[in-house]
């Protein structure tokens, strides 16, 4: 009697294990629905993606429905590992993530206006601009004009892949672009401009680039880098504790409660008006953007012939 019970138990265990393994192993759906490119692809992004207009909601509205969505992390190591390992075909990463270049991945052009423009845009206290005049603004605008997305990605790579120091990376970039980084003997005799940054590597590198350009032109500079999130930086800027910080246009617009919709010029005008009322001047935006971006491997891009987000909605043929 007991023997039968044990054998039955063992058999049930085995049957269950096989059944569960068979069910558990649910890989990416094989293209039963092969209407569009996206319906053959698995998309990986942060867990908040499904409820965000700038993520899944916006993609669905553009007629892009993926075969499956994997909730991973916010453009971090999990998402990039999953893309590298072929677990997902399309990843949501930050556009200036150096791994995109290192791995030869393809950043899909945002031709459906999924994400707001996120141009690097320096902001500075208006009283500092008034005191230093047009020469100062021309200097900063000149630097900004030369920072493009590819260049910014390369700066990030030097930090996160090569492990270089932000100050050294900034000095090298300025020298390459014809700027003087050593302070001239004859200074401007100004009150030090307090340059600050957010608490992540890219912001620190950008702050160093601007700070060293100012120093090279003879301005006195004081650094308060790695200050924290925007919740800390904005009040510090308003109170005059800091004078200068490189911002991100779209995110700043959201934070200031104005619409991030439209092109770079529209968003720039919106944040200029909103911040201007608080005694902060918004200087010219750099061409460089760091925003959420859909990224695919070179193999996926080649086999489906895609290089923009709208291509995902195209017929898979």
């Amino acid at each position: 009697m007991r023997n039968i019970r044990w054998r039955a138990f063992g058999a049930a265990l085995l049957a269950f294990a096989l059944l569960a393994a068979a069910c558990g192993d649910d890989g990416p759906g094989e293209g039963a629905n092969d209407a569009t490119v996206a319906s053959n692809l698995v998309f990986g992004g942060p867990p908040e993606c499904p409820t965000r207009p700038s993520c899944m909601i916006g993609l669905n509205e553009a007629g892009i429905e993926f075969a499956d969505f994997k909730a991973l992390d916010s453009g971090g190591p999990l998402t990039s590992t999953a893309l590298e390992g072929g677990e997902i075909d399309v990843a949501l990463l930050f556009s200036t993530n150096p791994l995109i270049a290192v791995n030869g991945w393809v950043l899909l052009d945002d031709d459906i206006g999924l994400n707001p423009v996120e141009n690097i845009t320096p902001v500075v206290r208006t009283d500092v601009v008034d005191a230093l005049g047009a020469d100062f603004v021309a200097l900063i605008d000149g630097v900004s004009a030369q920072i493009d997305t590819a260049g910014l990605t390369e700066l990030n790579r030097q930090q996160s892949v090569d492990g270089d120091d932000p100050a050294a990376i900034a000095a090298r970039w300025l020298t390459e672009h014809g700027y003087e980084t050593m302070a001239p003997a004859e200074g401007m005799g100004n009150d030090p401009i307090v340059v600050s940054s957010f608490n992540f590597g890219e912001s620190e590198i950008l702050a160093e680039v601007y700070a060293q350009a100012m120093e090279g032109a003879g301005y006195a500079v004081e650094r308060k880098l790695n200050l924290g999130s925007r919740e800390i930086v904005k009040p510090a800027l308003e109170s005059g504790e800091i004078d200068f910080v490189p911002e991100y246009a779209g995110t700043l617009a959201n934070f200031l409660g104005v619409s991030p919709e439209g092109d770079t010029a529209t968003v720039h005008e919106a944040i200029s008006i909103a911040y201007g009322g608080l005694g902060i001047s918004v200087l010219a935006s750099a061409p460089a953007e760091d925003k959420n971006a859909l990224v695919v491997t070179a193999e996926v891009a080649a086999s489906y012939g895609i290089d923009s987000i709208s291509d995902l909605a195209a017929s898979a043929g």
Partner: peptide, 12 residues
């Protein structure tokens, strides 16, 4: 499904 499969394998 995952919990039961794990327990079955762990016992085995």
């Amino acid at each position: 499904q995952l919990s039961a499969f794990t327990m079955a394998v762990a016992l085995a």
